[in-house]
Each structure stands twice: as structure tokens, then as C-alpha cells.
Amino acid sequence: AEYTLTISSWAPPTHGINAKMWPGLIKMIEDATDGRVTAEVKLGIAPPPAQMDLVQDGAADMSIIFHGYQAGRFVTTKLIELPGYEGSAEAASVAYWRVFEKYLSKANEHRGVKVIALHTHGPAQLHTNVKVTALDQIKGLKLRVPGGVGGDVGAALGATGIKVPAPKVYETLASKAADGVVIPMESRKGFRLVEVAPYVYRMPGGFYRGSFAMIMNEDAFAALPEDIRKALAEKVFGEPASRMLGKVWDEIDAIGLEETLKTPGNEIVDASAEDVAAYKPIADKIIAKVLDEVAAAGVDAKAAYAMIREEMAKAE
């Protein structure tokens, strides 16, 4: 290839992010440019919250960021993390990109880097090492929750928050420093939760969805010839990449589910109708709070929220 881009990534090497998402994106880039551009993934250059600085200053050409790791910097990205959206990660990721173009990009929260895709993982469910069968049992549990909406949900349900990055979840649960974690089904395989959190409590639509972006160094993009830039902009960056990434999240969620079903001792409990109803007002309160925050960032929050629901309904 004429151009080889460097990707900085985190998460374990076998996790879907590194095993499927980057390879998928690299393939899209190669196909769109007839193999003139390719990329290679490097792990462990710096911790997750450092990734945006790495890309901004050109220590790497591309990276993946989890918005919840940078409290204060990202507010409008919380919109896609809200509980209650029905639909796949693919539908959510496509909707996310469209609403970003129309509304969220105005807040300019990713200033300094080029956003090339936005995506969310599948609905986050509760995974515990003590059996949970009802919503009110969550109160008092020590739960690992991420930043962003996930943290708000944990607090609203009366759980004590344990703060560790996702790759440390296994050790935290194994040492019983936490009773459980709210994370998508894929982590049952990706972070080996089948071993340390045998019980799953599922809420339709999940407790929240985590928000990710793929970002690129602006100069690295500008340094590519115009025809390549055009091909990437049309065929890869934006909606096509976001759709592909969302689809991978759905795929690895399915793998996580499969792994759970075939692991002896693992058990999945679905929230009862009463618990779903009981969760609704809790979720509504969080939604209202986040919409206020997003509006304060200068975005038409209500319209953006309505658009996500609409787009996701369209995709079904």
C-alpha cells in the first residue's frame, strides 16, 4: 500500500473491537481505495482517556474513544446512551451518525480531531455474582458502572458505584470488589464475565448504551491525495463505517449470549412486566436530566432525541 495509517487501540487483543471492528474498518478502507491505503493496529500505547490527545497530536493516525471515560468533555454524546431505545446496535449507530450530522456536531465536542464513525454497543444489562431476579434487589449492590448515563442509572437504582475501566472488570469481579457490572452481553465473552458473573438480569432495551467514536488525525487525512479523500468520505467514513461497527456489536452480543447459554451455571432472568413498568419512571427522570444537559450544550435536545427514536423505528 502507498499509505499505511497507524491505529492506536485498547481493550484486550481478542475483544471484538480489535478482532473484528478494526479489521472491518481496514477492509472498508482498502476496498474503497483499491488497496492504496491500509492501516495497522497497535495496542497499549496509552490508556483509554489518552487516545484523543494521541490522535490530535499525531502520535497515532486513528483511534477509538469511549466518551464516558472523559467526564466533562462529552455531553451531547450522552443522548445515544439513554435507556429505552428499542432496536439493534446497528440501527442505533446509524441513527447516531445521522443525528450527529444534523444536531450534535454543532456542540463541536470532538474539536481537534476528525470523527470518522460513531457507534454504540448493544443494550447494557446487569451481570452479577449474586442472583438478581427483581429490580429492587439492585439497591445496595456494588456495581461497576462507566461514566456517562451508565453512572446515572446505577445511582438512580441505589447501587454503589465502583469505578474501574472495562478491561479491569474481570479482576474486580473475581476479587469480589464489586457484585456486578452493567455492560452489554458481548462482554460475557469479551471480558470473560461467564466466569465471574454467572447471573444476567435483562431489561428490554437495556439500562443504557455506551457511546464510542472512531477518530482520525486531521493532518493525516489532509495529507492523503484528493481522490483518496473523496473515496473515503463517500464509501467509508460516516454512515457506512458506523453501520458496520454497530453490526459488529450486534454480532458479538449474539456470541456473548451463546456463550452464556452454553456455560453451566450461567443464568438469564428477564425483568418482569412490573419491573419494566417500575423502571420507566426512573429512566424518564434520567432522560429528562440528560436532555437538559444536552440543551445546555447548545443543541436542540428534544428534536435530536425525537430524531433518534424515529430513525431507529424506521430501521426496524
Partner: peptide, 19 residues
Amino acid sequence: LALRARSYGDVTEYLHIPQ
């Protein structure tokens, strides 16, 4: 990088200590 963190408004999760 510290000045940059300030311009983005980065804070810690619970105590909201400016990064």
C-alpha cells in the same frame, strides 16, 4: 495537555475535580 484538558472542561467522575 493540562491547558487543553481545561479548555475541554475535563473533570473526574464523582468529585468533579478538574483534570
